[in-house]
Nucleic acid binder design. Structure first.
Lengths: 174, 174
DNA sequence: GATGATTGTGAGTAATCACTTGCAAAAATA
DNA sequence: TATTTTTGCAAGTGATTACTCACAATCATC
């Protein structure tokens, strides 16, 4: 990966996250990255290839987050880490996660499969804690953290920290 | 409102909801509506005006939904109606609501203000039912219906009906 | 240091973009 | 019925789109 290649990825990430994929032209990306437009196509083939390169890195980052939760043996720890996921995301990575959420709508990427390991870990955790409907509890909690994540990245007026604390108490993991 | 004007709105709604606002060209809208492209600009000024016309109708429809909840006097009824909101949306209106959700990301429309009356109604309901943190409960529930709505419109594999029933029992409103 | 591969540029390309204009048909008003 | 207003179309407009290509500069390998 050359230096200019990374410049392109970084510029594309920022623009895609801010303006959206379709609203961002390759010429804008090139200008922001400080390279010629042709270089984008030399390295990434086409505009979609550029997006895919960003998405691939996204998949990697997300898996890292999930692994940290799945590895947790204490069921309460699993739930706590899940709830704290949105508030723990690095602000330097905001653009990155924003793009992921944006693309779920812009390109109709389901995202269900990626959540499966997390869903299973949560289901097990709730089962160990003798919840009556562990699968549903898992789905519900994922729905919540997805919503809190959305609110955080969209700059909603929602008090995310307060809500997180509230959830931690509700699930009695703290 | 002429017949062709409605044809344009209907075509634009379908295309914007499916492909997104930026990915849909005015020529595609015209072709789908069976009118000349110029007519779009005659009636709506520009592409954004066309979108705004759709959005205005959306605001109206949403307010109707919320009024039905806010008017409810029984606190449990307020919560029940809120939870059942996503499963009760008319399938004929799917494109419509999908566009609303899509635009929240594509154009960064906050949507917080629109939720305020609903949030207040829920807060009051939870207070009447002696919940310790009525505001937070309201925020949480709105987060949930937003998430369920997203899942429904995105065609997620999530079992929406089951989750709705689960919540109705969790909140003891049924 | 010659050679071949990789990295990079800048000026192209046709197609499509949102939008305009001139003019006719239709409708409303007188 | 004459006149004005509205509705509609077809053929444009310049700008921008994603993308290509010929050609340099830089690089690694022998």
């Amino acid at each position: 990966m050359t230096e200019k290649q990374e410049k392109i990825l970084q510029a594309a990430l920022q623009l895609f996250a801010k303006e959206g994929y379709h609203a961002t032209s390759t010429s804008k990306v090139a200008k922001k990255a400080g390279v010629s437009e042709g270089l984008i196509f030399r390295h990434f083939g086409n505009k979609e290839g550029l997006l895919q390169a960003i998405l691939d890195e996204g998949e990697k980052k997300f898996k890292e987050l999930v692994v940290n939760i799945v590895m947790e043996s204490d069921p309460k720890g699993v739930i706590q880490k899940t709830i704290e996921m949105p508030v723990n995301i690095d602000k330097a990575d905001y653009d990155f996660w924003k793009l992921q959420f944006k693309l779920k709508w812009e390109l109709e990427v389901s995202g269900d499969k990626k959540m499966e390991p997390l869903h299973m870990a949560l289901t097990n955790a709730f089962r160990k804690l003798n919840y009556q409907h562990p699968e549903l509890e898992a789905s519900l909690l994922i729905l919540f953290i997805d919503g809190i994540g959305s609110a955080t990245l969209k700059g909603s007026s929602l008090n995310v920290n307060e809500l997180t604390q509230f959830l931690l108490h509700k699930y009695q993991v703290i």
